[in-house]
Every structure is written in C-alpha cells, then in structure tokens.
Design a binder for these strands. Sequence first.
DNA 1: ACAGCTATCTATAAGAG
DNA 2: TCTCTTATAGATAGCTG
Lengths: 199, 199
Amino acid sequence: MGRRKVEIKRIESKSSRQVTFCKRRNGLMEKARQLSILCESSVAILIVSSTGKLYSFSSGDGIAKILKRYEIQHADELKNLDLAEKSRNYLSHKELLEIVKCKLEEANTNNTSLESLNSLEEQFKAALSTTRVRKMELMMELVKNLQEKEKLLREENQILASQLAKMEKKGCPETEDEGAMSSENSFRNSPPTTLSLLK
Amino acid sequence: MGRRKVEIKRIESKSSRQVTFCKRRNGLMEKARQLSILCESSVAILIVSSTGKLYSFSSGDGIAKILKRYEIQHADELKNLDLAEKSRNYLSHKELLEIVKCKLEEANTNNTSLESLNSLEEQFKAALSTTRVRKMELMMELVKNLQEKEKLLREENQILASQLAKMEKKGCPETEDEGAMSSENSFRNSPPTTLSLLK
DNA sequence: ACAGCTATCTATAAGAG
DNA sequence: TCTCTTATAGATAGCTG
C-alpha cells in the first residue's frame, strides 16, 4: 500500500527496516484494536523486535485473562483457584506435626490429669475442623493433579516436537513460511523452540 | 476499506459480525506474518472470539517463548520443584490426628498439671499463627506457578500441533503470500490435539 | 455458513522538509 | 532521524450466487 509493491521478505536496509517495523507495528495494533471492538473478541499481540524489545497489545483485560479463557478446563481451573484461595490460611502438615511433637514432649515431663488430657484432645480436634482437613486434602490433590497434568503435557510436547522435527527434515529443510526463519534469526543463539520450557 | 466507512464499534448484526470477524482476523494474521518476515521480528497473536473459540498465530518459535519474555516475574522453576517435593512429605491431617491421639494417651499414663496443659494450648496457638501464613503463601505460590506452567505448556502444545498439521497438509509451503492462509487454516476449527490427554 | 467480486476505504512506501 | 505528505498497493463492506 505504498508507492510501490514490496516483496514479503526481510528488508535489507537496516534503517528502512526500522521504519517499516514501526509503521507496521502500529498498524497491526490498530487493526487488533478494531477487531476486538467490532467483533467483541479478545485479542492479544506480542511482538519482539530484532533488537529484543518487546511490544504488546491486548484488548482490555490483559493477556493473562485472554489466556485464561482459552484454558480448556474452565470449570476445573476455577475450582482450583477457588480452592487455592480458600486454603490460603491453612497450616502445612509438616509444620503442625513439628509443633505437636514438641509440645507433647514438653507436656510429658509434667503431670497431667485424665480430664484435662481429654479436653486437650477435644480442643485439638476442634482446631483441626473437619472442613479444614478436607480442604487441605483437596489442596494436596490439586497439586498432585497439576503435577500429573504437567507430566502429560510435557510428554505430549516431546512427541509433537519430535514429529515436527522429523517432518521438517523430510519435507522442507530450508524455506519456512511465516517466520520460522525469522524466528531462527531473532533468537539465533537460543536452543530449539520447544525445549525452552522443558529444561 | 470497503464500500463504506465503518465506525469502530460493536457490530450489531450477528451474522455480519461473524463475517467481519473472519475477514479481519485473516487480515490481521497476514499482517502479523508480513511484519515478522519483513522486519525479522517475533510476533504472536491470540484471539478469542465472542463464542470462546481460540485462534492464534505465531511466527515460528511459538508463543511460549515470546510469552516468557512477557512474564515479568517468572518465578524460578527450581523453587517450585523443591517446594513440590517438600509438600509431598507432609502427612495427611488424618494421620496427624492419629499420632496426636496416641501421644495423648501416652501422656495419660503419666500425670500432667492442668496449667501446663493450658499453657501448652496457648503456645500451640501462637506458634500456629506465626508461621502459618508464610508457609501457606509458599504453597499457594507453588500452585500458581504450576498453573502458569501448565498454561505455557498448553500454548506450546497447541502451536506444535498446528505446525504439525500444517506440515502434514502442505508438505512444504513455498511463497510468502500463501503461507499465511495455510497457517490460518490450520488453526481454524481444529480443537487442539492436546486436549485428548487432559480430560 | 461460504466464496467470489469490486467499489471504496485504509495503510503505508517513498519522498519531502 | 523524525514527521508530514501523497500516490498507490492492499484490505474489506456490502453484494451476489
């Protein structure tokens, strides 16, 4: 859309590349904004220039929220968060154990009546209300589930990555559309794509 | 850029909103692709339609990597692992309760003064409140980080899956202008492959 | 829903200050 | 380098099938 048609390939001149980057980046963001408004959708854009500078756009509520929507297990996650918040005030088991052990030993060295011991037990039970126990258990379950999920995802990730690698070798070793090359360039010295998260 | 100028505000007609969404979404992705190539930058786009469907574009290296830069305080994963392991060692409250009971019965055979028991209780409460909050916060952090990690992994997974799909479809895409469409298509209606594993 | 078609509108490449 | 201008390429709104 300028005085002449441009080929879509890396602009060699550094300065005009910079100028074009700025113009087109602004254009892209504006388009994103319009799309999000016209069609009431959530849009997020992240751009890292070749010099490593980050630019981002997101319609309204920030990237985190957009990503959240995309979470497949909505209900599950909401439940998780809810649970997480509720259990914020609970004590860790290990901690509790330590304290109890310590205190009991202390108590042991003194004299205790049967009645008072019973009442102690009652109070202790009360303190450890049933709901608390339950929530803590759920909390533990949450962590366990998350860890399992993570494991599955990593496994699947590995599989996908290796399949991709295979195909890339067989199919088309050099020309990659949509910036596979450019990404190679802009992250020249970083390890292969997928592995970043997997270390 | 059409037959008439449009105001940038929500399109009321559902059908034409849908059509516009599709057209502009494609346009946006194409622009993103061009930007990433022309200026050798990394670009990622995430769009969630009003119906909750996800569309994404990313130049080559996947969103995860770009997101990583964006995450301001990316808590170290090592800490996570450490924490996770620690939490695995915590006893369940039920178990704890058993232990306490046992100890109390043990103590029963000896004699303990009422006062010492009361003071025990006080000390116990005090000790609880001191460290409870901090420990729990760490725990929450663990969960939060796990959830974030999961999110990133899902992202990455989807990208890999779609790249794979793209390659399978086309083998080896060649010229710039066609490429965007192919990437678009591969994202269009395919529910992420990932999900199968996660239910 | 979808796929073309153009008349129009927009974005922007190159030039100017 | 930056900003502004302007001619032109490109995107797309409203149609049509």
